[in-house]
């Protein structure tokens, strides 16, 4: 599978990264090198093999559905452009 310029633009859009038109061919080339490298996996027969979901067998931890933390709204918004403990974000709805 090979990546063309159109695919780079589509993937960049999905990844929400602005890619300048002049950088598209370079990125396509770089992605193709990496994808060619991972193509080696085609040699491996994985019939009947389950994907690895956990590297160590362990039962999923469960916790009680209760409030254990909170009441520090100021700390939550400390890194944002906030007013009155709200997030101020760009306009989302026109």
């Amino acid at each position: 599978m090979s990546v063309d310029d159109k695919t780079v633009r589509r993937v960049a859009k999905l990844a929400r990264i602005k890619v300048e038109e002049k950088d598209v061919p370079r990125l396509a080339a770089e992605l193709n090198v990496i994808l060619a490298f991972v193509e080696q996996l085609n040699e491996v027969n994985v019939d009947g093999i389950a994907p690895l979901t956990s590297v160590v067998a362990a039962e999923m931890k469960k916790r009680k559905d209760v409030v254990t933390d909170g009441h520090y709204a100021k700390a939550i918004v400390a890194n944002t452009q906030s007013e009155d403990q709200f997030f101020i974000v760009p306009r989302v709805v026109e």
């Binding site: 780079v8 960049a12 990264i17 990125l27 992605l31 990496i34 996996l41 491996v44 389950a50 994907p51």
Partner: peptide
């Protein structure tokens, strides 16, 4: 950026099984 783009590509519709699931199977091996 390069890795986010590669990651987005291998997870994108139609490629997930061919790349990510396959790689996770190789991990089992």
């Amino acid at each position: 950026q390069r890795r986010v783009l590669v990651g987005t590509y291998v997870l994108s519709a139609g490629y997930y099984d061919a790349y990510y699931v396959k790689a996770q199977k190789v991990r089992t091996l």
